[in-house]
């Protein structure tokens, strides 16, 4: 645990010492503001609901999470510091978990900074706090899963750009498929629907805490972390 904490601290200092985390935060918040206050104005329509902001936040997260994880392992490999880490008494899993936790903390900060949206809606309307809390839980779980996928993508390549693009595709696809279900052949519909982020997030965003959705996001996170660890172990053994 001490090893994880030490690497996590180093990651966070590294993130905030460089403009990448701040730029990612600024772009995330700017994009959310642009979509939910100007393009798809949440104040128009007479409904006090966070569903539209949540939908846009989830879309923005699918870019934000890969952006904050793209350098997690890929940069270490490019600069050669991964070899230094490999000589220390830490396991590959501890390294991956620490890097993932650093990304999750950034996701949590990003989501925390959007709390002004529900506060403003509650000021003007009859905002139900239950779906808001469940929606934020869904965003956090989805963001954590995307961060794990992003760390896995970063572990499998030396190029940050490749890691970013790979992670965007890997996290964006499960969202996009959710919106294209009418195109899915009928025999596959049940399985494909279950595998989409959109299905599970929509459950939480309307205010239903469904064990299936929580297990699903936890599973994606676990698999992402395992694949990242696997890729790192292969590299250390090479």
């Amino acid at each position: 645990m001490r090893n994880v904490r030490a690497i996590l601290r180093r990651e966070l200092i590294g993130s905030f010492g460089q403009p990448i985390a701040l730029v990612a935060l600024a772009v995330f918040l700017g994009a959310v503001a642009l979509f939910t206050l100007w393009f798809d104005d949440v104040f128009v329509g007479g409904v006090a609901s966070m569903r539209r902001p949540f939908a846009w936040m989830s879309v923005c997260l699918a870019v934000f999470a890969p952006a904050v994880t793209m350098r997690a392992v890929a940069d270490e490999r490019r600069t050669g510091t991964l070899h230094v880490l490999a000589t220390m008494p830490v396991t590959s899993f501890q390294i991956i978990v620490a890097k993932w936790l650093a990304a999750v903390i950034l996701v949590a900060i990003a989501l925390g900074l959007t709390l002004t949206w529900p506060l403003a809606l509650a000021w003007f309307g009859d905002l139900d706090p239950g779906p808001v809390l469940a929606g934020y839980l869904g965003l956090f779980l989805a963001g954590s899963a995307m961060a794990a996928v992003g760390v896995a993508a970063s572990s499998s390549t030396e190029s940050q750009v490749s890691a970013f693009l790979l992670a965007v595709v890997a996290t964006g696809l499960p969202w996009l498929v959710g919106y294209a279900l009418p195109l899915v052949p009928r025999p596959w519909l049940g399985v494909v629907n279950y595998l989409t982020f959109e299905y599970h997030f929509a459950n939480l965003a309307v205010g239903v805490l469904d064990s299936r959705s929580i297990v699903f996001f936890a599973s994606v996170t676990a698999l992402g972390l395992r694949f990242a660890t696997h890729a790192l172990e292969q590299r250390r053994l090479a």
Partner: peptide, 23 residues
């Protein structure tokens, strides 16, 4: 979802800025 009384058109932009300002 419950209804909401949107801010008047002429002051809506102030609210939008108020939402973004903390960030």
């Amino acid at each position: 979802d419950g209804p909401m009384t949107p801010p008047p058109a002429e002051t809506a932009w102030r609210w939008k800025i108020a939402v973004v300002a903390p960030q």
